[in-house]
Nucleic acid binder design. Sequence first.
RNA 1: GUCCGGAUGGUGUAGUGGCCUAUCAUGAAAGCCUGUCGAGCUUUCGACCCGGGUUCGAAUCCCGGUCCGGGCGCCA
Length: 434
Amino acid sequence: MIFRTHYSGDITPELDGEEVTLAGFAHETRDLGGIAFLVLRDRKGLAQVTLVKRLVGKEMFRTVRSISRESVVLVRGTVKAETKAPRGFEILPTEVKVLSAAKVPLPLDPTEKVECELDTRLDARFMDIRRPCVLAAFEIESAVLRSLRGYFYIQGITEVFTPKIVAAATEGGTDLFPISYFEKEAFLNQSPQLYKQMLMGAGMDKVFEIGPIFRAEEHDTRRHLNEAISIDVEVSFADDKDVMEILEGAVAEAYRYVAENCRYQLEVLGLELKVPKTPFRKVTYTEALEMASERSEVKMQWGDDLDTETEKFLGEAIGEHYFLTDWPSSIKPYYTLPYEDKPEICRGFDLMHPRMELASGAQRVHDYNQLVARIKEKGLDPEGFEFYLKAFRYGMPPHAGWGLGLSRLVMTMLNLENIRDAVIFPRDRRRLVP
RNA sequence: GUCCGGAUGGUGUAGUGGCCUAUCAUGAAAGCCUGUCGAGCUUUCGACCCGGGUUCGAAUCCCGGUCCGGGCGCCA
């Protein structure tokens, strides 16, 4: 059984005279005595239901007047073109049914007359998402995923899933969440990195994965979470330049698709989306340091990772998406390929939005001996990487790839203040519920 | 982790020692109203994060805690 025949947003004055069934939430009711209005909201917009007391009868009039805000209602009726009504039409009901009454008072105000703090919103996320501007962001996120999948499929990239439960914290660096796995200790995976590289050794040639990653870092910022969705790509017989092209193409395609297909959502958010132009500007790490040194206070030495201040400065100076390339080998992971003629720098890159880092990638080390040496150089034990290294002993194509943060892409695209606005149920240092 | 700021009805807020039986908006309850569109009008309801201290007197000052926001750090 399908309850509704139309969404509110699909109704226009041209449907004058048509019988429709709407289903959604009671956004507001306004009772003027002899006439009352019920505004119904669904995910495509609002529709006004008009009840004239002497036409609909006392019983239906009383029912509507008693509906609490945000109750789930079903309305059957006739569309009437009416210039006095919002959007030029109203629904004259033959039946109004409360499918599920909402308790009062509400945990927040979905009509947005009163502001609401992020913490309050997240505690009542189900109701927060009823607010059109919140919903719009998640609908756009879905569109981004759809556009990226389409973009990858067209390029012959295969979608894969790699395990999120892994045996050892062997990648070094970030802290992992330990979990109990029967009689063994296990961890939630921080990145599909090692697995997607192994798939290059498996001859899958081009793969992508969209899935969760987990990091146990105790960071506390507007752009970090402990559970995130990563968009990962790995391509054989490709170098860093090739995969940067795929990456900038993916970002531009996501913007283009959203601009074209999410007009209603963008309007709700009051945004006009500018599709970034490709190719993106490329700035080497060393050039970036020089740019930053034009400011009076520079605390950074060559070889340091860029601090937040420098990142911000570069963002403001450049003002659009750009790549940071040719990083010092010392601050990129062991699987990043150093330049042959200049091993102190490597073929690693970051994709930057003026506000923050969106993605990082590299041409990878594909030579077994070099990889083992790099692991040792980083102070890690190759023994722990045996499951990974094994794939490099029997013929490993040269390959390159990257990982892109979905929420950061959406956050920067929609100019959201906090990454939590781009995640339906965010997980941070303190929040585990809902 | 660290620095700064904050916590007042369901929600968002005003209130820097007595004028607070605490402001305003929104909301809720009851009533009036036939074109509202953040409807209007009348009446009513509902709050000072927790613990200790200072003081004749604390929402307000001090100490401790909890929680929240922002910056930095951390983030292969």
